[in-house]
Amino acid sequence: MVQRFSNITGRAWVFGNNINTDQIIQGQYLRLLDYSEMAKHTFEIPRPLFASRVKKNDIVVAGHNFGGGSSREEAPKVLLHSGVGCVVAESFARIFYRNSFNIGLPLLIVQNGSKLVKDGETVTVNLLEGTLTIKEKGDVIHGKPLPNRMLEILKAGGAVPWYKQRAGHKG
C-alpha cells in the first residue's frame, strides 16, 4: 500500500499549460461505451503517438491549469486506462482534480515540473512526501503535500470504495 504511493516510477510525458479535457479526450469519443476503446484516443490532438507508446506507470508532467473545460470524468479515466501512474502539474482545474481522485488517479502539484523535467526522462513521484525526483539528475523537486481528504479517498482506492467504507462504518 505504502509502496503504491511512495514510489511511482515511469517515463515523463511533458506538456505545456492549459491542457483541457478536450485535448485529453475529444468529445466525439464520449459516446464510446468501452473505456479501452476510448483510451486509444488519449491525447490524440496534442500527442498523437501517446496512446500507442505509453507504458504502465508513465508520468504526465504539465504546466498550469491541467484538465480545464468539460467536466468529463472520461479524461482521468482514459489516463488511468492508459497506465498513467500520476499526473504532476503546477495547478489543476477543479473538476478534473476531484474526478481524478474519485477514480483513483493520483495528482501532485509541483511548481516548474514541466520546465525542469525533459520529455522521456525517468521520474519518480512520492505522494506521501509530495516529491518528484528526476532519476538521471538525482534532482528532487518538492511539491504540495496532498490534502488529507484526497489522500483518504486515494488510499481507499477511489470515491466508491471510500463511500462503501464510510457507509459500512456508519451502518
Binding site: 473545460g69 470515491a159 463511500y163
Partner: peptide, 30 residues
C-alpha cells in the same frame, strides 16, 4: 449538474456547480 456549465444557475441566486460521474452517483445514492 453532471456538466461543467452548471454554473449557469447562479443567474437565479443559486449555488450551482458541475461535477462528474462518480460524484453524481454518490449524490444519487445519498
Amino acid at each position: 449538474g453532471s456538466d461543467s456549465h452548471s454554473t449557469t444557475y447562479g443567474a437565479f441566486n443559486a449555488f450551482s456547480t458541475g461535477l462528474a460521474a462518480t460524484d453524481s452517483a454518490l449524490i444519487l445514492a445519498t
